[in-house]
Design a protein around this nucleic acid. Structure first.
Length: 326
DNA sequence: AACTCGGGGTG
DNA sequence: CACCCAGAGTT
């Protein structure tokens, strides 16, 4: 792909006005768009990493009520932050968010970085997130590239790699309204230039599009494995028996769940089953009633207290279904 | 460049 | 079921 040359520059410049006009008319009214507070933007961007808007919506304001400022977040225990993050997945995001909050409060006197380069140094802030925060909260003319923007640019300009897309994104960025432009092109990818069959008839820059949505490179991914497993649900009075994952486990370290049952025996009573789909695995989980005290190392946790622990998403799902929490 | 990390909504 | 989501960090 060649972006140099007067023709292409003219062509790129033509995209900006109709795209921004479309965004001004059609943008979704999302809660994080009501603020330019760097803390609010930061939390929203981290929460949105590899996570759909619909999944973030019910969690974003709740998180900000719990941790209303970077100081409150920094002074919280990491388990509280993990508990609030429970179910959102990619728990390293929550750990990094917390670590970065401490760094901002302790080493920067609570002053947020003012540019993308400095944001980039904080844990959990990569190239995308640094650019998103800096452009939206501070008006820095730096482009973002996420899954949406990459797809749009591959179709629009014929980009063939992530590297080309980053370059193209920076070229077409509107330097007067970088935050709005970045959100506009992401919004276009989410609403019009969607994966699968794009809605080209609704596209504000369709006449400038190189491929009109054709010529997708189809990548085949390995299918999900079906896995069966069992967990023991033991209750005693208004307490439930929970175990904590070991701190050095690679997956969800330190989070709480029910004891795993290695193999079912005939007299086990299956209370119910739940499905849990995680990227490469599709779990079918049997929940077993356990009346006697389980052997596993663990703790009896009061129902009212279970909410405060960082539960795995699966544990939350099971405890909810059993009417033990929420 | 290729993996890993959660979970789920959508067609 | 297949796909992929406002990615980051590690290998």
């Amino acid at each position: 792909m060649e972006l140099r040359g007067p023709t292409n520059f003219r062509r790129l410049a033509q995209l900006r006005r109709p795209l921004l006009a479309w965004y001004d008319q059609n943008r979704r009214d999302l809660p994080w768009r009501a603020s330019r507070d760097p803390y609010h933007i930061w939390v929203s961007e981290v929460m949105l990493q590899q996570t759909r808007v619909a999944a973030v919506l019910p969690r974003y304001e709740k998180f900000l009520r719990r941790f209303p400022s970077v100081q409150k977040l920094a002074s919280a225990r990491v388990t509280s932050v993990l508990a609030e993050w429970s179910g959102l997945g990619y728990y390293r995001r929550a750990r990094n968010l917390h670590a970065a909050a401490k760094e901002i409060v302790r080493e920067r006197a609570g002053i947020f970085p003012q540019d993308s380069e400095t944001w980039r140094k904080l844990p959990g802030i990569g190239r995308y997130t640094a650019a998103a925060i800096a452009s939206i909260a501070f008006g820095e003319p730096v482009a973002v590239l996420d899954g949406n923007v990459d797809r749009v640019l591959r179709r629009l300009l014929g980009s063939n790699s992530v590297r080309e897309s980053w370059n193209a994104a920076q070229q077409i960025l509107d330097r007067k309204r970088p935050g709005d432009f970045n959100q506009a092109i992401m919004e276009l990818g989410a609403m019009v230039c969607v994966p699968g069959e794009p809605l080209c008839s609704q596209c504000p820059i369709g006449t400038l599009c190189r491929t009109r949505g054709r010529g997708e490179a189809r990548t085949s991914k390995p299918k999900q494995r079906k896995v069966s497993s069992s967990f023991a649900l033991a209750t005693r009075g208004d307490s439930v028996f929970l175990v904590q994952r070991h701190a050095d486990e690679s997956l969800m370290p330190g989070m709480w769940e029910m004891p795993k049952v290695e193999s079912l025996i005939r007299r086990d009573e299956v209370l119910f089953t739940v499905r849990h789909s995680i990227t490469v695995s599709d779990y079918l989980v049997s929940v077993i009633a356990q009346s006697a005290a389980p052997m596993a190392r663990g703790t009896w946790v009061k129902y009212a207290r279970a909410n405060k622990l960082p539960l795995t998403g699966l544990a939350t799902k099971i405890l909810r279904k059993a009417n033990i929490i929420e």
